[in-house]
Amino acid sequence: MGEPPRLVATDIDGTLLRDDRTLSPRTAAALARIAAVGTPVVLVTGRPIRWLPLVYEQLAEPLPAICANGAVVYDPVTDEVLRADPLAPELLAEVARRLRAEVPGVSFAVEIVDSRQMRHEAHYPLRWDADHEAIRAIGSPEELHAAPAVKLLARAGEQDPDAFVRVVAGALQGLAEATHSSYSGLVEISAAGVTKAAGLAWYAARLGIDERDVLAFGDMPNDVPMLTWAGRGVAVANGHPAVREIADEVTASNEEDGVAAYLERFFPPTA
Rank of each mutant, 00 (worst) to 15 (best):
G2R: 14
G2F: 15
V8R: 01
A9V: 05
A9C: 13
T10A: 07
T15G: 05
T15A: 06
L16C: 10
L17C: 08
S24N: 08
T39K: 01
I49E: 00
W51N: 03
A68L: 10
A68H: 02
N69I: 10
G70W: 00
Y74Q: 02
R98S: 13
R100T: 12
A101V: 11
E102I: 05
G105T: 08
G105I: 07
S107A: 15
V113Y: 07
D114L: 08
M118T: 07
E121F: 05
A122Y: 13
A122T: 12
H123C: 12
G139E: 13
E143A: 14
L144M: 14
A149K: 00
E158R: 15
D160F: 08
P161D: 07
V167R: 13
V167D: 08
A171L: 04
T179H: 04
H180I: 04
H180Y: 12
Y183C: 12
V187A: 14
I189N: 00
G193A: 08
K196D: 04
L200W: 06
L200C: 13
N222Q: 08
N222P: 08
D223G: 05
T228G: 10
W229K: 01
A235N: 06
A235Y: 03
R244T: 09
A252T: 11
G258C: 07
F266R: 02
P268N: 09
